[in-house]
Each structure stands twice: as C-alpha cells, then as structure tokens.
Design a binder for these strands. Structure first.
Length: 419
RNA sequence: CGGGCCGUAGUAUAUCGGUUGUACAAGUGCUUUGGGAGCAUUUAGGCUGGGUUCGACUCCCAGCGGCCCGACCA
C-alpha cells in the first residue's frame, strides 16, 4: 500500500491519557484508536496485525482438528440460568440489555454455554464425538477497571475453542495436544522465548489447567519462573505442596511480572449436566460429554507483542505478524529516483510482497526514517540518489543498526521467499 | 468497588480572578530533502451544569470523562 493513501498519521507526542507502552506506541503509530476507557477501534495497520495473528491461531487450531464456526453475541438468559451464570451475583461482568418486547438478553462475555447448547441438537451418540469447535469473536465484559491499553479492555477479540470428549482420558489426550499447539502459537507470533507454561488456580490438584504467561512489566500477574524446567507457577498457588507435586525447587524460582496471553483448562461434565448435553455409549448407556476450554485474547496478544519486543524507537514486529513485510522508502524528489522506486514497488506488488511504500513527496528523509522505526516493519528498503549511485537498494532489518546495499534481484528473492 | 492524580485547539503543554500563550499537526506561498527542515501567513481551544463574584478557564459544589495503585479477573 502507498503511504500517501494511508489516512492514519504517526504522532510524535505520546497520548496524555495512556501510560502503557503498548497503547502509546500503537496509538502513536496509528494502529488503534481509543473510543473510551478499555475500548479501542482497530485502524488499517492494527487490523492487519490482528488478522495475521488470527491466521496463525486458525492454522494451529485446524491442525489439532478444530472446526471453526461463529456463535452469537446476544445471549439467551434461559441458557445461562441453567448453569447459574446469569445472575449478577454470580457473574459481575455482564452487559445486559432489553429487547423491544421486554425480554432481557446478555451480551456475550464467554462461550461455553453457547457451544454446549448448540451441540445438544447434534450430539446423541458416542459416534458423534469427540468434537473440537472454536470461534473468533468480539467479547464484551463490564470490567470494573480496564487498564494497560489493549491488555485489558471492556471489548476485545478472542478465540475460544471447546473440546467435547467422550470421557476424561480422551479429554486429557487432547488437552496435551492443545498445550503444544498453544506453545507453537506463541512461538510463531514471536514471543515464545518470554512465554511460560504456568500453573495457576487448581495447581497440583487440577493437572489440566494452565496459563500461558508472557514476561512483561505491564503484566497483571506475578509468576515464579523455573528457568531449567521452562515452566512457571502463579503466585496465587505458590505453596510448598504445589511446588513439591510439580517437582519445582523454591530457591530456583525467579519472580517476574507477566501477562496471561492464553489459558487452557478442564471443564469436565458440569455444564453438559446442567444443560443436558449427553450421548449414548456403545452399550446404550447415557453419559455426559466431557468439556475443555481453551482461550486466547488476540488484542491482548498484539499488545503483549508490542510490550515484549519494542525498543526506544518504536515497535518491532516479527515477520509473522507484521502489517507489511517491508517498508519501502523513497528519498528526495529526483525523477529518476522516483521512477526507480515506483518500479520496485510495482514489481513487489506483482510478486505478492506485502509492502508499505512511503511515497510521500512532502516528507523529509528524517521523518520517513523515524516513521519506519516507529511502525516497525521487519525490513526497511531505501531508494535514493545515494543507493542508485551504488546500483542497488539499501536494505536494513528493523533490529539492525546499519543497512547494506543489495541488488534489486537479491531484494526480490529475499522478500518473495517471505511471502 | 476503595484510594490518588487529572480534564485548555486535531495532538502535547503553559500562564492568569480582567481579550488564553507556545510547539507539533493542518491550509497557502517560497526555499529545503540521509535521521522528526526554514521563513512568512492562516485556521483552530477552556468537559457539562450550578454557585461565589462587577467579572470565572482560573475559586467552590455536583455530574460526566480519563489515567494510576489496590481489590476483582469463571
């Protein structure tokens, strides 16, 4: 895309009403727009990142046998009453509203009831199971305090997968596969090195309940990391008994602030019992479906990537989730330079390279460099009188200090391999 | 939900109980083009409601809104 057509502009000033790094940088770069506390719109650049993350998660979910669908935002009160989660005394984050006919409906803050209720109509035999269903969805939660930019909002986009197994053994088997899939997701979006499988509520007594925590000072949780075992334990369950059962030594644990980027846990049969989701086994005996729940907040994940990987000049996007793979800059107003830059841009587009072309004619070189640093594309390619004189294009990784001159062919081969 | 801080142009910041100043952004003209350019010129502002006062953006009260700390987070 041509930057001259990108309506969002970068800002030099940090917003006065945001102090978290993720919000400061994402707003300065024009990735998101704040609507109100805890509510953000995604602008073109931000949406591209969100979609990249979504693609990676979808890929991993499909790999473990997940089937994508989409559940509704408006929620039927009756279903939630069956599981005792309608009352504000039980769930204090509901947004609720009224229908014209006077009926009361809720706005979706979670999904278990939706999925389980739908399956009542389609699952009746052991032959129908297991099922692994997921959706991407906007979730609304009336948080008492939203905070830290897009790390905790009142409205956010998430992926939720629910597993419906015949029994606990079958569930546990799938659970282990999800654990690996989640680790793969966090690796693929570039924060694997700072993300830890973490034991939280349930701890030793619920072998199958885990958080994935990413180290960042902006985090809401305190966790204790055991580097040698590559796992961590949440402060809330830091007890002798739990440590022993996990084989962790207290003096090897290091305290960190961290943000929960994903969690997976065993639900069991309680919701299927409450909602009447059962199946007949081989002997015709009635059994309740065994459920598991697996969630990731995509906006929070995007914010966490910013928190974890940015430097003092701006964002640093991993290639897997960057809005564009390369930021092409043209410097100066020399006609030959402009012609060359446009030619390179056109051939990138033709080859399917995701490129942001800074073709703005009224912007100084320094400002283009600063914008490129702030926006954080993995590669920066500069076309100028200087690069032309050296018969090439200056290519620099966002993570490197200095660039080097490469030929157009080299550049295209490198970028095509990435696309 | 408890506590603290705050609310002035699109953004970021000043001053002041008596015509709100500056920077960036934006418009126009000229110059400039390898690390957020220069000159000239233009546009644009006191959250809402009440009170005190001759006069309130400034002081007081209430509301609304924002950030932070804590509590909460299936």
């Amino acid at each position: 895309m041509r930057q001259s057509k990108l309506f969002t502009k970068t800002r030099k000033e940090v917003p006065a009403d945001e102090t978290s790094k993720n919000a400061e940088l994402l707003i300065r770069g024009g990735f998101i727009h704040k609507e109100m506390a805890g509510v953000y719109s995604y602008l073109p650049l931000g949406l591209r990142v969100l979609k990249k993350i979504e693609g990676i998660i979808r890929d991993e979910m499909n790999r473990v046998g997940g089937i994508e669908m989409k559940t509704s935002i408006l929620q039927d009160k009756e279903i939630w009453e069956k599981t005792n989660r309608w009352s504000d005394d039980e769930v204090d984050i509901w947004f609720k509203t009224k229908l014209k006919n006077g009926g009361e409906v809720g706005l979706s803050w979670s999904n278990e009831e939706n999925f389980a209720n739908i399956l009542k109509q389609y699952v009746s035999s052991y032959k129908d199971l297991p099922l692994y269903l997921y959706d991407f969805k906007d979730i609304l939660r009336n948080e008492t305090r939203s905070k830290s930019g897009i790390l905790r909002g009142r409205e956010f986009y998430w992926k939720a997968l629910y597993s419906f197994s015949r029994n606990e053994a079958e569930h546990n088997n799938f659970y282990e596969r999800m654990k690996v899939a989640y680790q793969d997701i966090f690796k693929r979006v570039g924060i694997g090195h700072v993300t830890y499988l973490t034991f939280a509520s349930g701890g030793a007594f619920s072998k199958y309940s885990h958080e994935f925590q990413t180290l960042t000072s902006a985090g809401e949780d305190t966790i204790y990391v055991s580097e040698d075992k590559a796992m961590a334990i949440n402060k809330e369950v830091l007890e002798e008994e739990v440590l022993t059962s996990l084989g962790l030594e207290k003096d090897k644990l290091v305290e960190h602030r961290a943000i929960e980027v994903g969690n997976i846990f065993t639900l069991g049969v309680s919701k299927p019992e409450a909602l009447g989701l059962s199946y007949a086994d081989k002997d015709g005996e009635k059994n309740y479906v065994f459920m598991g729940s697996y969630g990731i907040g995509l906006g929070r994940l995007m914010g966490t990537i910013v928190e974890a990987l940015s430097d003092d000049k701006g964002m640093v996007w991993p290639e897997s989730v960057a809005p564009f793979s390369v930021h092409l800059l043209v410097l100066g107003a020399d006609e030959e330079v402009l012609r060359e830059a446009n030619k390179i841009y056109e051939s990138m587009i033709k080859d399917g390279v995701e490129v942001l072309f800074d073709d703005r004619s009224d912007v100084s070189a320094g400002e283009k460099f600063s914008d490129a640093d702030l926006l954080g594309m993995p590669y920066r390619a500069v076309v100028s009188a200087r690069s032309l004189k050296e018969n090439g294009i200056e290519l620099k990784k966002r993570t490197e200090e200095k660039g080097k001159i490469v030929s157009e062919t080299e550049l295209m081969n490198l970028l095509k391999a990435k696309s």
